[in-house]
């Protein structure tokens, strides 16, 4: 088994992850991140994967999809969301989104809007009965 990397290497890997978390919407050059962290590309990918269970590219995609879900939950349109989170085309966005969430962005948008309406109309359907009863809501 590999020895765990030294603490300063960890800090660089963590900084790379935080960079992705902050700049996911931009056209991120993952090779440049490896360069900035002064690693070879392959060493960087290997350490990143050891820490986060995903390659930097897989992680970036994951962050973009999660952010897309948040924006769709707010009711923004599929094409606005696609570009807002850093994808450069609706068809590749739709394809990846479906792979991660098992539904298309437009289906997810509809589902979330419907759920929001249901929660507003009948909140008790979404609150555990014991909690509602304790508070005298039922």
């Amino acid at each position: 088994m590999d020895q765990p990397p030294k603490i300063y290497l960890y800090r660089r890997i963590v900084l790379a992850k935080l960079f992705i978390d902050e700049h996911y919407a931009e056209d991120i050059d993952l090779d440049a991140i490896a360069g900035e962290a002064s690693f070879s590309k392959f060493h960087f990918i290997r350490l990143f994967k050891m820490a986060y269970g995903k390659t930097p590219h897989q992680y970036l995609t994951r962050v973009r999809i999660e952010q897309a879900k948040l924006l769709l939950e707010k009711g923004e349109s599929v094409s606005d969301v696609c570009f807002a989170v850093g994808f450069d085309g609706v068809s590749s966005f739709t394809h990846l989104f479906k792979r991660f969430t098992k539904m298309t962005p437009s289906a997810y948008l509809r589902q979330q809007q419907q759920r929001k309406e249901e929660i507003a109309a009948a909140p008790l359907k979404f609150i555990p009965g014991c909690f509602a009863a304790q508070n005298g809501w039922i």
Partner: peptide, 14 residues
């Protein structure tokens, strides 16, 4: 978490 030292460093940075 998958990696405690990395997660500790990240959360501390946050």
């Amino acid at each position: 978490c998958n990696d405690l030292v990395a997660t500790y460093e990240e959360l501390t940075a946050r």
